[in-house]
Design a binder for these strands. Structure first.
Lengths: 158, 158
DNA sequence: TTCGATTCTATCGTGCACGATAGATATGTG
DNA sequence: CACATATCTATCGTGCACGATAGAATCGAA
C-alpha cells in the first residue's frame, strides 16, 4: 500500500521520494486492525476469546445449521491451516463440536454446544461500546464498512 | 466489530439476532488487510520481503536519520517485541544495521545499508499496481485512508 | 552521590496466518 | 469395476503480534 499517487516517473528516476507509512492506504488499514483488536480485547478477555475466535463464533451464531470447515473458511476468509487449530481450541473450551459428515466423510461439521450458544447473549453490548469509541456516526461506519468491503473484493479479484 | 446498530434491547432480550461477520466494520477491515497482504505478496516476494518488513523499510526510506527502535515502534505502531526480531531478520539480510546510541546506551539506532537504500528504487512501481487493482480512484483511496486513520486514532484514544 | 523511579530494548510464551504438502474420501471416465 | 482427478481437512514450518517480564541505562530528588 504505497498506493497513493506518484507523479515522478518510477522507471527513470531512481530517487522517487519515499512514501511514509502514514501516506499509505495499506498502513491505515493495517494499523486500524491492530487498534480495533486492542479495543475489543477487554470485552473479549471477559469471555476468554481472542478476536479471531470471536469472529468464528459470530459466524456460527449467525449460521443456520452446522456449517462445514470449508463454509466457515469462505465466510471468514481464513485458510483451513488457520481454522483447524483455532476450532480445536474452541472445542477444547467446550464451545463447539467437530464431527465428520456422514454424507461426505471429507467434510467436518462444526456445531455449537449449549455453552457456545449461550455465550452470544454475553456479547450483545460489545457492538455499541466499539461504535461509541470509534467517534463516528452509525451512517459513517456503515459507509466505511461498504467502502472497505468493496476494496477487499476488488483486491481479491485482481 | 459487531459495531453496527442494534435496535432491540441487548439487556432484556437474550436472543438478539447475531450479526454476521459481513455486517461488521471490524471484519471488513480484518479481511481487507488479508486481501491487501495477498495483493502485495507477489511484488514483495521479488524483493524477499514480507509485508511488515516492507512497512518498516518504508518508514526507514522516509526517515531523515537513523531512527531508534522506539521511534520506529511509534511510527508503525508495533511493539518492540514484534520489531526486535523483525529488525534482526532485516539485519541478517544485510538491509540495515543495529547499533547502540553512544549518547543513550538504552537506545538502538537503525541505519540502512547501501543495499537497504538501493532497494527503494525497486519498489516504486508497486503503489500504482495496487491502486489499479483496488478498482478505486485516487481520490476515493485518499478519502478512505483518512477515514480509516481517523477511526484508528479514535480507537487508540478510547 | 546515592538510590528509587523511569525509560528503553530484548526475551519468552501463546495464538494467529499462510503456503506447501499430505492423506483420505469422493467423483468421473473408460 | 478400475483408476485418474478433484475436493476437503489436517499437518508442518516460518513469520508476525502482543502481554508480561527482565535487565541495563538514565534521570531525579534528597
Amino acid at each position: 500500500m504505497t498506493d497513493t499517487a506518484q507523479t515522478s516517473d518510477p522507471q527513470t528516476d531512481p530517487k522517487t521520494p519515499a512514501l511514509s507509512p502514514q501516506d499509505m492506504v495499506c498502513f491505515s488499514l493495517y494499523s486500524a486492525v491492530h487498534a480495533m483488536t486492542q479495543a475489543y480485547r477487554p470485552h473479549l478477555e471477559a469471555l476468554g476469546l481472542t478476536y479471531p475466535q470471536y469472529l468464528v463464533m459470530s459466524a456460527l451464531w449467525s449460521a443456520g445449521e452446522a456449517p462445514t470447515v470449508g463454509m466457515l473458511s469462505r465466510q471468514v476468509q481464513l485458510e483451513s491451516s488457520t481454522l483447524t487449530p483455532l476450532l480445536k481450541r474452541l472445542e477444547a473450551m467446550g464451545l463447539l463440536t467437530r464431527r465428520r459428515d456422514a454424507e461426505d466423510e471429507r467434510q467436518v461439521r462444526i456445531a455449537l454446544t449449549d455453552a457456545g450458544q449461550s455465550m452470544q447473549g454475553r456479547t450483545s453490548h460489545i457492538a455499541g461500546c466499539i461504535a461509541e469509541q470509534s467517534g463516528m456516526s452509525v451512517d459513517e461506519l456503515l459507509a466505511l464498512r461498504d467502502q472497505v468491503s468493496r476494496l477487499r473484493d476488488n483486491l481479491r479479484k485482481g
